[in-house]
Write a protein that binds this DNA or RNA. Structure first.
Lengths: 343, 343
DNA sequence: CTGAAAGCGCTTACAG
DNA sequence: CTGAAAGCGCTTACAG
């Protein structure tokens, strides 16, 4: 049972492969194929269920109609949903999507990029890891289309879609201040990623603009990659040492989740004893009692913008390395964890 | 800047393309390439950063080293994590993975299968939708490797990896009975998928084996695809009409989530007024106060088993259509939502 | 308006 | 032990 090829179609119609190819690729008009011939070809293609062999097409044109999606963790709410939307949009445009998770590991990320390159993807959407600069620059030099999503690489001008982390953090902090909280703890991770430093800057600016002084000890930074147990115990210790705090700002989703566990263990009630805000929304924050106020990333917008940008670059409607980024505004979703403070 | 090809390597070494090809494909020994030649070739390949053109290889061999993963929703915790593990295992074996979400829509699923077929995937892992039988049978007839995951197709003998839904449901119900709950409500969806009917059967058997009588009105089934608002109002109404219930069994993850919202709205406290169990674990159930007792799907085991099975079929170590399924045992994770009942 | 043919970069049967 | 060559199924420059 052999698959039908263009040759078979051409032979059955007593025409040439060329004609069949022109019809398939929508070049009938430009190439002056008669409407009658065109219809004959189309009908037989449908009847025989012919589909062009993608490998042959790929070999000949050098285009695979495939894009590579490299995220931190496809199993995570944010990236899973980013992936879903990117795939749908790509599909609409005739592209398939390979995916992989870096687990935030440089070596893995590098391997994935190269593996996908060997599979001739036409372009990438990449969630960068910290040491990925060289690898990404190589793509740029070889003129392979890509878009960075969610995080920038410091000192690399390129195409990206990221959240306005500074503004989100500023607004989230400001929300706490407006609600009357005056002694806010900031819990983050040690990271050179711009997103984390932007969040810290936003926090500090908001505190500063409010005329308050921030004590150094109000900031806790946790080693990246610390396990849950360690993280929770560090947060608990931080809480013990800072009994005067009336609110906590968690700089990432998972710190927020672990922080809530830590608060439960320390018998600190939300929001009576401590108000809580976190960056990144998820189901948990929405459904917990009390629900948690967050700076939410507009997943759909970020995903759509990134795949659209990549497709424009692939189609040469936009230049690579043009430093044409999109900065998406986060949304502050006010919930029950930050009621106006009773003085 | 042209990519280096086997031809370039061969020319530079004054040898033939054949020799280079044999070395690349690990056939040196079988084909009697001398170790010296082999080393020369390998060294130059490394030096020139040569990578075989996958399109050419694919065209020639008919193998793409790609598998297609079709799930219900990659953005969902269960499938996202299934995808992650499948991708890692596939990668280890030299395969890339295309993915797509069906959103449980038959037409989408059919299109995806065909789209991937045109991209010549070597095999599929598929979360079936209800009306996918014919399409899947076609794959079988054409001898295209595939494995069904998470759900069976009724009356279709094939390769699959599913959860033992009956047993999980039986055990979860039994746990409630053992803890002293005697009037258990079962909340599910209308579905012809075997998984849902197995869960209902498990529930009914456990009730029956306990010697209790079940009143019909203790079962609520919700139209598949109902939105959150509708679902919550249906559950609320059900609770109002069945004031005598002391426990609820949610047959899926998302029903559990919505059910908890409904309980909150109705001011019914968990677990004081009502014990709760749900099928499918997730972060929320673990972190809620109180945490929720669940029948958990061993995600890693299911993912690993399915990709291993698919690779065996692709490598012809196992026959397709052999009806060789793997039925994975769910784990009952007892948490705070089901304390022993105070009589 | 349409066709014959080169060539994309591999793998492998065949020849020596 | 190694090489010359066919052929996978397309696209497209060229010829008519």
């Amino acid at each position: 049972m052999k698959k039908v090829s263009m040759k078979d179609i051409a032979k059955e119609l007593n025409t040439s492969i060329t004609t069949v190819s022109f019809v398939i690729n929508g070049k009938s008009e430009a190439m002056g194929i008669s409407p009658a011939t065109e219809k004959k070809v189309r009908d037989l293609i449908k009847k025989r269920e012919f589909n062009p062999n993608s490998a042959a097409r790929m070999l000949r044109t050098g285009k695979s109609k495939t894009i590579g999606l490299i995220v931190e963790d496809i199993g995570n709410f944010f990236f899973g949903n980013i992936a879903k939307i990117i795939e749908i949009e790509a599909n609409k445009n005739g592209y398939n999507v390979f995916f992989s998770s870096t687990e935030n590991n440089d070596e893995t990320a590098k391997k994935l990029i190269n593996k996908m390159r060997n599979s001739s993807v036409d372009g990438y959407i990449i969630t960068a890891t910290q040491g990925l600069k060289e690898e990404v620059m190589k793509l740029g030099k070889e003129n392979i289309p890509f878009v960075l999503i969610d995080r920038l690489i410091p000192d690399l001008e390129t195409n990206y879609v990221i959240l306005d982390n500074y503004q989100g953090s500023y607004n989230l902090t400001n929300h706490l201040i407006e609600r009357g909280y005056s002694n806010i703890g900031f819990i983050s991770i040690y990271s050179e990623m711009s997103m984390m430093s932007e969040r810290e800057k936003g926090f500090l600016s908001a505190i500063n603009d409010s005329g308050k002084e921030l004590e150094d000890k109000n900031i806790l930074k946790i080693e990246f990659g610390s396990n849950e147990e360690k993280t929770i115990s560090l947060i608990s210790e931080f809480l013990r040492k800072n009994q005067n705090l009336d609110a906590l700002f968690f700089a990432t989703n998972y710190l927020g989740v672990m922080g809530i566990e830590a608060l439960q263990k320390c018998k600190i009630r939300i929001p009576q004893d401590m108000a809580i805000v976190s960056f990144d929304d998820n189901d948990l924050f929405r459904l917990l009692t009390p629900s948690i106020t967050v700076a939410s990333q507009p997943i759909k917008e970020m995903a759509t913008k990134s795949i659209e940008m990549l497709l424009r670059i692939i189609k040469k409607e936009q230049r690579l390395n043009e430093n044409k980024g999109q900065i998406i505004k986060p949304e502050i979703i006010v919930r029950d964890s930050t009621p106006p403070k009773i003085q």
